[in-house]
Design a protein around this nucleic acid. Structure first.
Lengths: 321, 321
DNA sequence: TTCCATGTTTGACTTTTGTCGAGAGCCGTG
DNA sequence: CACGGCTCTCGACAAAAGTCAAACATGGAA
């Protein structure tokens, strides 16, 4: 493939079409190629992020409910995807919104931390392309070599690919069999540096996991369903970047957590913009815990979840008074 | 007009079409309106800045010549519009490029200083719409009540309108008949505050004017052709925001300049990003002066002008060595 | 060299989108 | 309450964009 000329042509076509507003056939004879080629170049330009088409997410923050949620939980910004109003699949709607919000929050030169999960992978999957070469996407937690498609490193790499950014993967397993080994690995320079670099991120993207048999941790074999249930009894309330948190949003003191290679919650809290996206309604308590723990400054949820959160905030203040 | 619902509909249609990728007819029966209406809403969405279509300007900075210009003149970034390669009218090409670059440089929450001239007005005119409510556009110089359409306040307002931003106009004439009056007016709180606020801008957009009978200053009656010629003999090399500068890019010591209400060059230099756009080839010397005076960190020019600048830089260093 | 594999380009066709004028709803006014 | 003036909406048509299979390059391996 003649790399340069093709790239140039794509760019020129995109420029004439999108910036100057010429029609495809005008572009075609301007560049002496067929209109069909122009159409193809333009598709490539969109897929490469040479042209960016973005839709304002205003509508979803300009909501009374969103404002009230921001106030009630002290969040910087909340976006609410109107459930079942638009489309068949509401979870797609949330992911599409989350992807737009994410792209709106990313700035040139940013360092972005990305965790892992079905939600994050869905977002990566539908995210449109952008051209942000000086952005770095870092993986927030170790890998899980699972039969599932949404592995931590895949989430990171896919998002990096979409942004034309640099991806920084974690070459360590998410969870080890002994605490000693985990400690040793964390002390390894390569790993230590990467863990230390997490606090320098400008933006984090993650979801929160539920503490049940459906959790990825169980499906991927990091924990058995029985262990999960036991942890739940010990106060586990949710999963963030592969770690178990309690209702207050702190790391639960348990063997599992001590064996995990992942971002420290303190590092996560040091990140300026922490974008949390929750699709499933079942993740109500985990989300509350994450918010309580200050793990989230920007939130994207569905309308139903938003309603439950507000209701909860209402009863909580009532109880308090 | 039912303002809110219309706005909502536009937003919803844009969301479904651009973010979810539905077709217009799918959007139409999702929203229970005709496809024709959807098409209309989408156009409005684009015109309002609810959706943003932007093309990367990479191609024009990724140029060897651009790099060399940056090095030779110590500029942060240079964009070169390839002359006569693309379109009939090369000056439009420069303006389109400048508008894209401008939109790329604007950040949320920015304060933007805008000067005046045909170039700036052309840019404003072809600039696409964006949705940047927390941006403020301030006028860099006083007004000239001329029969021309591109008055300073119009440039400012038009750009503010395009960005959905706040426009801050200067309620003073550009030039007064006596120095005393100018001094008094500059001391007026309203004016003083605005002049002081210019240094707080994050981005400035201006061009540079030539010192000849074609200058706007002459056409608008601020100076006669004879006066202009006299100033030229006294060392005038260009016009920036209504002020006459010498070859070194400093304010020329003359009666005219003392009677002008405009941004101090020191304030302009305090602005982080100073985007200068030059369309006409005749503005070679004025541009050199502006660069010499450090009035420009980001530059958009045509290929021919770029060539002349480089050539000049070459001979200058040769002379020096 | 020839041949295959891969990737590009194109003309012809289909689908999608843009536009325009007619008609419908909606005020405020005479 | 009927009348213009106004905007919004829709159906039908025209224009533009997307798609696909076939032709055409291109480059490397046998």
């Amino acid at each position: 493939m003649a790399i340069r000329p093709a790239e140039q042509l794509i760019h020129k076509a995109a420029w004439l079409y999108y910036a100057h507003g010429l029609r495809q056939d005008e572009v075609a004879n301007q560049l002496n190629i067929s209109r069909a080629s122009v159409a193809m170049y333009l598709r490539k330009a969109r897929e490469t992020g040479i042209v960016n088409i973005s839709t304002s997410t205003q509508l979803f923050t300009d909501d009374v409910m969103a404002r009230r949620l921001e106030d009630a939980f002290g969040l910087d910004a909340v976006w609410i995807a109107p459930e079942n109003a638009y489309l068949a699949d509401p979870s797609t709607d949330i992911a599409v919104l989350a992807a737009s919000v994410f792209l709106e929050l990313v700035k040139k030169g940013d360092r972005i931390g990305v965790a892992w999960g079905r939600t994050v992978y869905t977002i990566a999957d539908i995210m449109s392309y952008a051209d942000l070469q000086d952005v770095t996407v870092v993986q927030l937690c170790g890998n899980l070599g699972a039969p599932y498609s949404y592995r931590p490193d895949q989430c990171t790499m896919e998002i990096a690919r979409r942004l034309n950014a640099k991806g920084l993967n974690f070459y360590a397993p998410l969870v080890l069999s002994t605490e000693a080994l985990a400690q040793g690995l964390r002390a390894e320079p390569v790993i230590r540096d990467q863990l230390a670099g997490i606090a320098d991120c400008d933006l984090a993207l993650y979801s929160v996991g539920a503490v049940d048999a459906d959790s990825h941790l169980v499906k991927c074999g990091a924990l058995s369903a029985a262990e999960m249930a036991a942890l739940r009894d010990e106060g586990a309330a949710g999963v963030i970047a592969g770690q178990i948190i309690d209702a207050a949003g702190e790391v639960l003191d348990c063997s599992y957590n001590r064996r995990v290679i992942s971002a420290e919650l303190a590092s996560l809290r040091a990140i300026g913009k922490r974008l949390m996206v929750v699709q499933e309604d079942t993740k109500f308590e985990p989300l509350l815990s994450a918010i309580a723990g200050g793990l989230c400054t920007h939130l994207v949820v569905g309308a139903h979840m938003a309603g439950r959160l507000l209701q909860h905030a209402g009863t909580a203040t009532k109880k308090a008074s």
